[in-house]
Amino acid sequence: MSVYKSSTGLDENIAAVLCYLFAFLGALAFVMLEKKSRFVLFHALQSIFLFVALMIGHVLAGFIPLLGPLLASLLTLASLALWIILLIRAGQGKWLKLPWVGDLALHQARQL
């Protein structure tokens, strides 16, 4: 349990979990509402950037003949595993920064 609270009154780790649990809607809500916690804001932004990148990957896989469905299936499995890991690490109050999207999220969180 985190001793720090977000602007919403939730513990930071609970708010971060909600950013991943409800991907776009949860993360977008915390981007708009969070005024105090860089931890929550980072996880909200990383969630948005990650799930947008995954959606783009799925769309692009659909354009690849023969291998597209296999790539989309592998991307789905990797996405599920990553989602579970992010939920657990956020719940533990950890800053798990992913390559590319994590860097972008951290940069944006520092500017807001």
Rank of each mutant, 00 (worst) to 15 (best):
23 A>T: 12
81 A>S: 01
97 K>A: 14
60 L>A: 14
27 A>P: 05
99 P>F: 01
93 G>S: 13
40 V>T: 01
89 R>F: 04
37 S>T: 09
23 A>Y: 04
106 L>R: 09
65 P>T: 10
47 S>G: 13
32 M>V: 14
108 Q>C: 06
49 F>L: 13
61 A>K: 03
48 I>D: 03
87 L>R: 01
65 P>M: 09
82 L>P: 00
50 L>M: 08
17 V>Q: 02
92 Q>E: 14
89 R>C: 07
21 L>D: 02
101 V>T: 15
61 A>L: 01
20 Y>L: 01
16 A>D: 05
23 A>Q: 10
47 S>A: 15
70 L>A: 12
35 K>Y: 05
58 H>E: 15
72 A>I: 07
104 L>K: 13
87 L>K: 01
108 Q>S: 14
82 L>W: 03
19 C>D: 03
55 M>H: 12
73 S>N: 11
11 D>Q: 14
80 L>S: 12
66 L>Q: 14
60 L>C: 09
107 H>E: 11
92 Q>M: 11
103 D>S: 15
80 L>R: 09
93 G>A: 13
62 G>H: 10
46 Q>L: 07
57 G>E: 06
9 G>W: 04
14 I>M: 13
72 A>S: 14
96 L>A: 02
89 R>L: 05
97 K>E: 15
107 H>K: 15
61 A>F: 00
17 V>M: 06
40 V>N: 00
19 C>R: 03
79 S>M: 13
35 K>A: 04
70 L>G: 00
62 G>C: 06
73 S>V: 12
110 R>W: 13
29 A>C: 10
108 Q>R: 13
44 A>I: 04
39 F>L: 03
76 T>M: 10
111 Q>I: 06
22 F>S: 00
10 L>N: 03
26 G>M: 03
12 E>C: 05
55 M>S: 14
102 G>P: 12
57 G>Q: 00
4 Y>K: 14
39 F>T: 03
73 S>K: 07
94 K>T: 11
55 M>Y: 12
67 L>G: 08
43 H>F: 02
79 S>E: 12
105 A>Y: 10
13 N>T: 01
29 A>N: 06
42 F>K: 03
70 L>C: 04
88 I>H: 13
23 A>E: 05
13 N>F: 06
44 A>S: 08
57 G>K: 02
8 T>E: 05
59 V>T: 12
21 L>P: 02
31 V>T: 00
69 P>I: 07
64 I>H: 04
2 S>T: 08
16 A>M: 00
2 S>G: 13
75 L>C: 02
96 L>Q: 04
53 A>N: 08
5 K>D: 13
109 A>G: 05
83 W>N: 09
27 A>K: 04
49 F>W: 06
103 D>Q: 15
